[in-house]
Design a protein around this nucleic acid. Structure first.
Length: 329
DNA sequence: AGTATTTGACCAGG
DNA sequence: CCTGGTCAAATACT
């Protein structure tokens, strides 16, 4: 299982660890309860009776995480930590481009000329195996870290230069037996090019509701029911997507009858979120639970259909990024 | 030839 | 001064 945490790396406040742990544990319990509840919920409209409790649970989850963040950030309000690595443009400093941050170029080369990040949002995931997170990364460094057996690998987003995406990550093996890898993410992807999925954002002109539509393609040419996914859609957009998905689903079923199931590594996902309450949802948890089982979940808060052999956890990262993007609209 | 990785150098911060 | 993060030339790969 992957663990994930968000911390404000710039804060130097005393942290009440016990409180944080308590809050996080509580959040996990509630999330688990929600997961179970959603699992027993039907595919179709039978979810109605569960709607309110589910929403309450989601609210509790958010409260819990908010508390945790608040504690971590020093007990103040839960102001979000900076979304992007801070670009400190103090007067007298160099230009804003971190790539050209060396003011006085050395005669020979400019290696090591960079602006060290001060505060940025950091996400840590510990996983037993290396995994893809849906983004294209480019390795730019490797470093032996003091008192560790394995070197730390440094990656930046492939689209750092063409789309000014500032996301970076570090991967390090922190344990041998059983193997455990720690992936630390810095910043969020601002690039639009997801490695395995594409998405677009729609805004309904009437309601101003925004939606995100994903299209996930399978990895094999002969088996690719591309389906659309919607988040926070207006009824109009929703209806259109539902119709589209219905057709795709139909083709998909036909194909399943005739051909062999997809080989390992293929994935087909349809994710659909309606009446999405952006203030009270933990989309990542919701989708993660769906990916665990590959079956059908449904509620008023969200519904997620995932039929797949191995829907990679990495896709959740992409999904999560999309949520963040949506929330910033 | 174009792209990705490796690796030593360089620099900021503690 | 030490350490970790980044750069960029050299090298490997496709």
């Amino acid at each position: 299982m992957a663990t994930s945490s968000w911390v404000a790396s710039g804060s130097s406040v005393p942290v009440d660890r016990e409180r944080v742990i308590r809050e996080l544990t509580r959040g996990r319990k509630i999330a688990d309860e929600l997961r179970l509840r959603l699992r027993e919920t039907g595919v179709d409209g039978t979810a109605a009776a569960k709607v309110l409790p589910s929403q309450e649970l989601v609210g509790k989850i958010m409260d819990s995480f908010t508390q945790s963040i608040s504690i971590l950030s020093g007990g103040g309000d839960s102001d979000e930590v900076s979304q992007v690595p801070a670009v400190t443009n103090s007067p007298g400093r160099k230009s804003e481009d971190s790539g050209e941050s060396c003011k006085t170029p050395a005669p020979k080369d400019r290696r090591g000329c960079y602006k060290r990040r001060r505060t940025s949002e950091t996400s840590i995931k510990d996983t037993p195996t290396l995994f893809e997170d849906g983004h294209a990364w480019r390795k730019y460094g490797q470093k032996v870290i003091l008192n560790t057996k394995h070197p730390r690998n440094y990656y930046r987003c492939t689209h750092k230069f063409d789309q000014s995406c500032q996301a970076t990550k570090q991967v390090q093996k922190i344990q041998d037996d059983p193997p455990l890898f720690r992936t630390t993410y810095h910043g969020h992807h601002t690039c639009k090019n997801l490695f395995k999925s594409s998405h677009q954002i729609l805004v309904d002109p009437e309601t101003q509701n925004s939606s995100i539509i994903w299209s996930f393609a399978s990895r094999t040419a002969d088996y690719k029911p591309n389906k659309a996914a919607v988040i926070n859609s207006s009824p109009a957009v929703n209806a259109a997507i539902k119709q589209e998905n219905k057709e795709v689903e139909h083709d998909h079923e036909q194909m399943k009858m005739k051909s062999s199931p997809p080989s390992d590594g293929d994935y087909i996902i349809s994710a659909e979120l309606t009446a999405f309450d952006r203030n009270a949802t933990d989309p990542l948890g919701a989708f993660s639970s769906a990916s665990d089982h590959g079956d059908v979940l449904s509620s008023d808060v969200y519904s997620c259909t995932a039929s797949t052999h191995s829907m990679d956890v990495d896709m959740m990262g992409s999904v999560f990024d999309d949520f963040l993007e949506l929330e910033s609209l």
